[in-house]
Amino acid sequence: MNKTNTSQNTFIIFFGYLGRCFLRAIESIGDAAVLSATSLAHLFHRPWQGKHIVLQLYALGVGSFVIIAITGAFTGMVLALQGYYTLAKFGSESLLGSGVALSIIRELGPVLGAFMMVGRAGSSITAEIGIMRVTEQLDALQMMAVNPKARVILPRIIAMIIALPLLVSMFDMIGLGAGYIVGVELLGVNGGAFVGEMIAKVTPMDLYAGWVKALGFGILIGIICTYMGYRATPTTEGVAKATTQAVVAGSVGVLVLDYILTSFFL
């Protein structure tokens, strides 16, 4: 009797916990959607936030260029090395160019680029907005009749949406260049075959797939990171937690969205 009671209790606790987590997740998603939608609506209202979008593009986009370039270069290099190793077993090294190009353009460029942006720019967005919340800077903006959604959230989301596709394209270019150097100069694959295969196998659809992904990830990261910062518990600990959560949620979100978008573009 006693035993069944405890196991029943365990079930109730388990399902209660599960239900609570689920409801809280739904609630946060709804809250984030409303927050970003009301913020983005200010794009069409005066005052125009162009200057602040440019400043954020500088902080998030230009500031991330180096890390994106390094990631892109090493991704291209390792892909060429690994691809060569595998393809050489079948004597089809000539396919190396298309292998590297398709992997980078369709998949690795957008996904790794997005990861780097979550880690570098996304976390700083969350921490910055969270600290503005803790130090009452958001309230101070309110009191100076400046809407923090329009001034703080909107420029960051927009800058993220603009910057990510541009950065991903640069990632792709640098990755392809680095792949070419390793494949052709170091491993001795025929240069003409490398470039020829690359051009022959990459279709416009592959490029669209990469760009649509980059755009989607930009929107996702922008929304998640601004939301986490804006709704952070106003304590130092709360900001730290929000930053971690933003990076985790951003990265997982990118992977889930990647699967969904990939299934559309096959």
């Binding site: 600290i131 503005m132 130090t135 009452e136 800077q137 309230d139 101070a140 903006l141 309110q142 009191m143 100076m144 009749a145 809407n147």
Partner: peptide
């Protein structure tokens, strides 16, 4: 309305506990 509130706030000032200067 938010518009009216902002009009009102243009005539208000506030000194926050931790100053809240924009970093």
């Amino acid at each position: 309305s938010q518009k009216r509130l902002y009009q009102l706030r243009a005539r208000m000032g506030m000194l926050f506990q931790y100053s809240a200067l924009l970093n």
